[in-house]
Design a protein around this nucleic acid. Sequence first.
DNA 1: GCCAACGTTGGC
DNA 2: GCCAACGTTGGC
Length: 206
Amino acid sequence: MPPRKRKLDEMIADGKKQKSKPAQPQKETKGSNVEYCHWLMKSEPDSRLEKGIDVKFGIEDLKTCPDQTACWDGVRNYQARNFMRDQMKLGHKVFFYHSNTKEPGIVAICEVVKESYVDHTQFDSKDPHYDETSKKDNPRWYMVDVKYKRMLKRFVPLSQLKQLHIKHKETGGPLKNIALFTKARLSVQPVTQDEWDYILSLEDEG
DNA sequence: GCCAACGTTGGC
DNA sequence: GCCAACGTTGGC
């Protein structure tokens, strides 16, 4: 029997040449085949109702979770899902980003403490991210667990990152292609080693 | 609250 | 497979 064809949307979102890669030490290589080991994940620190349910989840909410760990449920975008499902591995570092708030920006560092598993909220009709088209024998959405590590010494606002991004496009600096602006609407984004190091260096600025 | 950018859906 | 309409994201 031929392999079952996957749905078109998933093919597109996955990219056609995405072969399953062995889970091995992540390394950034020059050129095409980049494997990431740093990430940025967006979450909303302010209350907002979605289907009558508050989706607020800021860094202070993560800190109060058991073991300061939360499952990253509710992602309903294929690209973001694929990063979580296929590429986010134990020990990977994550910038925790506050979005849709007065002062958007990076607030903290987290770590992946559980690799991808089925997002249970897709089957929960009361959940704001319920997906009635997803079947239990073939789940569509996956998540990882993320654990709080530490606050940044200094909040790094989106406005500063944007200034630097614009400047670096001219100068060829490390933030010239940062996904925060080149793939602005992705809620789970890869961060290169250079981007990570550069943003961390901003912590120590006056 | 506005709305630009962009992802998704569905008719053809 | 195109593309218009529609819905969502998220900065401002």
